[in-house]
Simulated scan of single mutants.
Amino acid sequence: MVLIDSGSGLANATIQQRLVPVRLFYDFLMEDGQRDSNPVGRGRYTPGRRHRGGHERGLVPRLTKLPWIPTEQQWLDILAVAAAEPVRNRVMLALAYDAALRREELCSLRTEDLDPAHRTLRVRAETTKNRLERVVPYSAPTGVLLSGYLAHRATISRARGPLFLSESRRDHAQPLSLWTWSKVVRRIALAADVPRFSTHTTRHLCLTDLARMGWELHAIATFAGHRHTDSTLTYIHLSGRDLADKLSRGMEQIHGWRVQMLARLGEPATGTVAL
């Protein structure tokens, strides 16, 4: 139990989820004729009716946080720890970043989804969040890691099927579960002293890096498997350091222009008539 004045509480997303059954209960009471209104507002907006009651606020404001991404040093710390991991874990981490894969997409990959000749992999629709299939590339270094893992996988099972297999005694040669992969990433994060690093961080980082390289929004949305660019915008953000660098470069240009204009004030005027 968490007291209101304890200084800690539930996350905004958790509160939103817990309000859903309460809201649905009051919907039921309204349909049953026991209530005339639902006190748990949904928070919706009808265009053109803002000044006529078209804007309704939810009971709890919905907060949207920017995705967290590691600093360059934190990323290097993660890689330093991951370098000592088995080849399966290393190739999974590499693919998770290279292809901006969600945890479910990564763990659901099958051997037939790979196209090593073109260094691409198919993310099947049934494994995606929005049931939208896509084909994404991966880098040459990841291809080398993947080749090494496939050779290692053959010593566990030569059967086609799930790409990543468990090597534990209890589940030997069985598909690697989502929870096992989460535990692996959590262990790496703690060993690197980067506790905020999670299975979704690599996706955040990849999409942000694509934005830094100048990719267009629609291209990033296609790569990420988003139906709408609104979803992509929540993943793409610039860190404070990026904004500071941009501001610094912009101010240098402005400063140089102002100095140049001031310098011209000292130049003798031409074509003027002395009075």
Rank of each mutant, 00 (worst) to 15 (best):
P162E: 01
H152A: 14
R110W: 06
T208Y: 00
S198A: 13
L146A: 05
P175M: 09
D171S: 14
S198C: 12
P141E: 05
A159Q: 14
H152I: 00
T199Q: 05
S139A: 15
F197S: 03
A140H: 14
R102W: 11
C206W: 06
P195Q: 05
A192R: 07
L145E: 12
R203S: 07
L205C: 07
P195R: 06
A191P: 01
K183F: 00
S198D: 07
S157F: 10
C206K: 15
V123R: 08
A140G: 07
R186D: 13
R153E: 07
R212H: 09
R134T: 10
P175A: 12
R187A: 14
T142D: 03
H200D: 10
R170E: 10
V136S: 10
D113G: 09
A154T: 05
G143S: 11
L109D: 08
A140F: 13
T111E: 03
T208D: 00
A100Y: 05
R119G: 01
A192D: 11
I188N: 01
H204G: 03
D193Q: 15
T201Q: 04
T127W: 01
A125H: 08
A140N: 06
L106K: 02
S108C: 12
S182R: 15
E104N: 14
C107A: 13
R186S: 13
N130M: 10
H152P: 00
K129A: 00
K129L: 01
T111A: 03
L207V: 00
L163E: 03
E126G: 04
S108T: 01
W215M: 13
Q174N: 04
L207P: 05
L114Y: 03
R170K: 11
L150E: 09
L114N: 07
V185R: 12
F164G: 02
K129F: 01
R119C: 02
G148A: 11
T202W: 10
W215H: 13
T142M: 05
R158I: 03
T155W: 06
N130Y: 08
M213P: 00
L106R: 02
L145C: 11
P137R: 06
S168V: 04
A117G: 11
R196K: 15
I156C: 14
T128C: 08
L145F: 09
S168D: 09
L132M: 13
T142G: 04
C107M: 12
R131H: 12
C107F: 00
V136I: 11
T180L: 01
L121K: 07
L146P: 04
R186Y: 03
L106D: 01
T128M: 05
D171N: 15
A99D: 10
A192C: 12
S108W: 03
W215L: 12
R124S: 11
H204V: 04
D115Q: 14
R102G: 09
E104R: 14
C107E: 05
L114G: 04
W215I: 09
A159K: 14
E126R: 05
A192H: 12
H118A: 15
S139M: 06
R153M: 09
A211K: 08
T142Y: 02
T201E: 04
I156G: 12
L114M: 08
R102C: 11
G214P: 10
L210F: 10
L205Y: 01
E133R: 07
A154E: 15
G143F: 08
V123S: 10
A140V: 15
D171P: 01
